[in-house]
Design a protein around this nucleic acid. Structure first.
Lengths: 217, 217
DNA sequence: ACCTGAACACCGTTCAAGT
DNA sequence: ACCTGAACACCGTTCAAGT
C-alpha cells in the first residue's frame, strides 16, 4: 500500500521479513482451508495451524476472521482489476469489437488461471461483500471499463456508465456458474466466445455509429 | 411437497397443525435474523428465540443449520421458478421480443417483490448452493427457458441449451448488483429495460430468422 | 405428538507470558 | 518484534425430561 520510495534500503530487516513470511503463509493457508473445508468450516485456529503458527499470531495481523477473509478477497480482486486495466494502452483507439475481445480475454485469463481459488472466493463475497475496500475495487474496474468504451473508434455511448454497469455485472453470472460447475476447458472457451457475442450485441444496441455523426454547424 | 390427495380429510389434526405453525414461524424468523444480523451472526438459538420456540424444537424439524438455510432458499427459488413457468402458456407462439419481455418482467416481479429478502438470500446461496434441491430448481428454471425460446414464432435457435444457459446466468449479475446497492425504483426499471435489450440483442445474434427457412425437399 | 433447556464439544478472540 | 497457548464467552447439536 505505502511502500517506502527510498531506493536502496533493504537488507537487515529480519523481524519485518519474518512477519511478511507469516502473513503470506496465513494468506495461503486461508485459501487452502477454504478449498478443502468450505467457508462454513473455515476456522481461525485451523487456518493458523495450516500456516504453521498459533491463533494468537494470526490475530496479530488480522483483527478478526472477517478482516482475514476480506484481505484474501481483496488480493484476488486487485489481480482482476490489474488484468483489466492492463489492456488499456493496447486497445486505445481500436474498434469496439477489439476492445470487447481484449476485455473478455483479460477477465477469463484472470478468473480461470486458478479456478479453484476463484470458486472458493465467491463464498467469501457473501460474507465481506459490503467491505469498503472490496467495493472500491469493484468501482475501479467499472471506471476502467467506462474509459475503455469511451475510446472505441467506431462507436459512441450516450450512457457509458449505465452500459458498463450492465456489461460488467452481466458477465459475472456466466463466469460464476462456470466456476461452480467446474466447467471443462472447452466449456470455458465456449462461454468466453458467447460472452464476446453477448457483449458486442448489447453494446452495439445501446451505442450510436460514428459514421453517421455530422451534427456540427 | 406430498399433500394428501383425498378431498375431505382435514379437521381434527391439532398436533400436525401446531407443528405447521411452528415450522412457518421458524421459517420467517430465519429470514428476519438474516435481515438484521447477517448470515455470520445467524444463530440457531437466535432463530429459535425469534420464532418463540426453543432450540430443541428447531432441531426437531431441521437436522442442522444448513438444512434450515437450504429450506428457506428453496422456498424462495421455487417462487422464482413458478413465476417463470407461469408465463409459459401466455407467450406460446409469440415473437421473441414478446417472450423476452414476459420473461424479464416475471423475473423482476419475483425478485423485487421483497428486495430485502432476495438480497439476504444471496448470502445463503454461498453456503448451500451445492444442495441437490437448489440445483434441481435452477435446472428446472433453465428447462423452462429452453422451452420458451423453442416456441418463438420468428426465430429458431441452433443451440438452445447454450443460449439459455448464457441468458439466465447473465441476467443474474445485474439483478444481484441492484439488490446489493438497494437500487431505487427508477434504477430497477432502468436495469429491467436494459436487460430486455441485452437479452434480445444476444438472442437475435445466436438465432436464425424463420423467414429464410426453406430447407425442405 | 410436541416442546424444553441443561450439557458437551467446538469456535472466535484475548492476553499474560515467553523468546 | 514477534510468537505461544490457556482461558472465556458463545455457537451447533443432543437428549433426558416434561406436557
Amino acid at each position: 500500500m505505502f511502500a517506502p520510495l527510498s531506493p536502496i534500503k533493504p537488507r537487515k530487516l529480519p523481524q519485518q521479513r519474518r512477519s511478511e513470511v507469516t502473513v503470506q503463509a496465513v494468506f495461503e493457508a486461508c485459501i487452502q482451508v477454504l478449498l478443502d473445508k468450505g467457508i462454513e468450516r473455515l476456522t481461525t485456529t485451523r487456518v493458523a495451524a495450516r500456516a504453521g503458527v498459533s491463533v494468537g499470531t494470526l490475530y496479530q495481523y488480522f483483527p478478526n476472521k472477517e478482516a482475514l477473509l476480506a484481505a484474501v478477497l481483496q488480493h484476488h480482486l486487485s489481480g482482476v482489476r490489474d488484468a483489466v486495466t492492463g489492456i488499456e494502452e493496447g486497445v486505445r483507439g481500436k474498434s469496439l469489437a477489439e476492445i470487447v475481445d481484449a476485455l473478455i480475454n483479460a477477465l477469463f485469463d484472470a478468473k480461470f488461471a486458478d479456478p479453484a481459488t476463484s470458486k472458493a472466493l465467491y463464498a467469501v463475497v457473501a460474507v465481506v461483500g459490503e467491505s469498503d475496500a472490496v467495493m472500491r475495487l469493484t468501482m475501479e474496474a467499472q471506471a476502467t471499463i467506462i474509459r475503455l468504451l469511451s475510446t472505441a473508434s467506431d462507436r459512441s455511448f450516450p450512457h457509458v456508465e449505465s452500459a458498463s454497469f450492465i456489461l460488467s455485472t452481466a458477465v459475472t453470472g456466466p463466469v460464476q456458474a462456470l466456476l461452480d460447475r467446474n466447467g471443462s476447458v472447452v466449456q470455458i472457451d465456449n462461454v468466453r466466445q458467447q460472452l464476446k457475442l453477448l457483449s458486442l450485441a448489447y453494446l452495439r444496441a445501446v451505442s450510436t455509429c460514428h459514421a453517421v455523426e455530422l451534427d456540427r454547424a
